[in-house]
Amino acid sequence: MGLSIDKMNVNGTISSEIVRMIKDNLLNGTLKPGDKLPTEKELMEQIGVSRTPVREAVKTLEAIGVIQIKRGEGMFITNNVSHFTLNPLIFSLIMHSHDMEEMIKFRQHFEVLLMNMIITQKQTDIHPIEKVYQSQTERMQPELSPEELVEIDLEFHYAVLEATNNPFVIEIGKTIYEIIKPKMIHFKNSQNIERTLATHKYYLDLISGKHEFNSSTIVQHMIKNNEEMVNE
């Protein structure tokens, strides 16, 4: 089934508009799991844009599992149905990803929700989170690249996501981190290693009950920690 190309919204970024087109085609049934997408070159010609926004859109869609790239065959809509459970919400997050300041604010409140979910569960195994944190204290070294530091940083946040045992929260959280990852890489440097580890220790102490859980205090701590990244 072919891809339906509609008029682009001038208020959005080109890459986000390409993502929106894919979303609309999925939601209206024009595209279905397993369908093959046009090549990057064909998309460029059909939409009338350059290669850069097409590649950005493809990377975003691939990162959240909407499309699969099969070497020598092309790009396909994934046929893993579980990836489509939260399509409208996930795509909504992507469509607003150009407003990074608001996205980071959303992440701050989302992470408060994560910690509250973990704390209020009857049984929670936080040992995987502790293990990741201990590993980070040894592996986050100044000589690493920003990309490497961010990958290690995100291991902690993914461990927190998994500890909620909630597939919806995990899916949303992974999408949030994929969206803000480029900003994290831009901000990350060796001087921020101590800040990152201190923040993770604070989260871990909250989850383990060493600090009183107070949502407003936690958000203020997060705002202070992220304000440089927002203004970068």
Rank of each mutant, 00 (worst) to 15 (best):
P146Y: 02
M140F: 03
I223P: 00
I179H: 04
I218R: 00
V169A: 08
T13A: 04
K23L: 07
L43C: 10
L37A: 02
I47Y: 07
H200N: 07
E42V: 11
Q123M: 07
E155W: 03
E17W: 10
E232D: 02
G34M: 06
E227A: 01
M1A: 12
N226W: 09
Y158D: 11
V132I: 14
N214H: 10
H221M: 03
G34K: 13
H211V: 05
Q123F: 11
E102H: 12
E138N: 12
M1P: 13
H200E: 10
L26H: 14
E62R: 14
T85I: 13
D35P: 14
E102C: 01
L113C: 07
E101H: 14
F156R: 04
M117Q: 12
P33D: 12
R195I: 03
N192H: 13
N87E: 14
G65A: 08
L154Y: 01
K224V: 00
M44A: 00
N11Y: 09
P167E: 06
R55P: 05
I77N: 11
M75W: 12
I77T: 08
M103W: 04
H157Y: 08
K224L: 01
L161E: 01
S92N: 13
S82E: 11
M103N: 08
I47W: 11
I77W: 01
D205N: 14
P33Y: 06
L113I: 05
M75I: 04
P142A: 14
M75C: 05
L3F: 12
L31H: 11
T120V: 04
K23Y: 15
R107C: 04
T217F: 08
E56V: 09
I193L: 03
H200S: 07
Q121H: 10
E212P: 04
Q191H: 12
H83I: 11
T85F: 12
K36R: 15
E171N: 05
K59E: 07
E138W: 05
Y177G: 02
N165K: 12
N214Y: 06
V132R: 00
F213V: 05
V66L: 15
F106A: 12
A63Q: 14
F213H: 07
L93V: 03
L3N: 02
E56S: 15
P182A: 02
L197Y: 01
T78W: 09
S135I: 00
T124R: 13
S50M: 09
D99A: 13
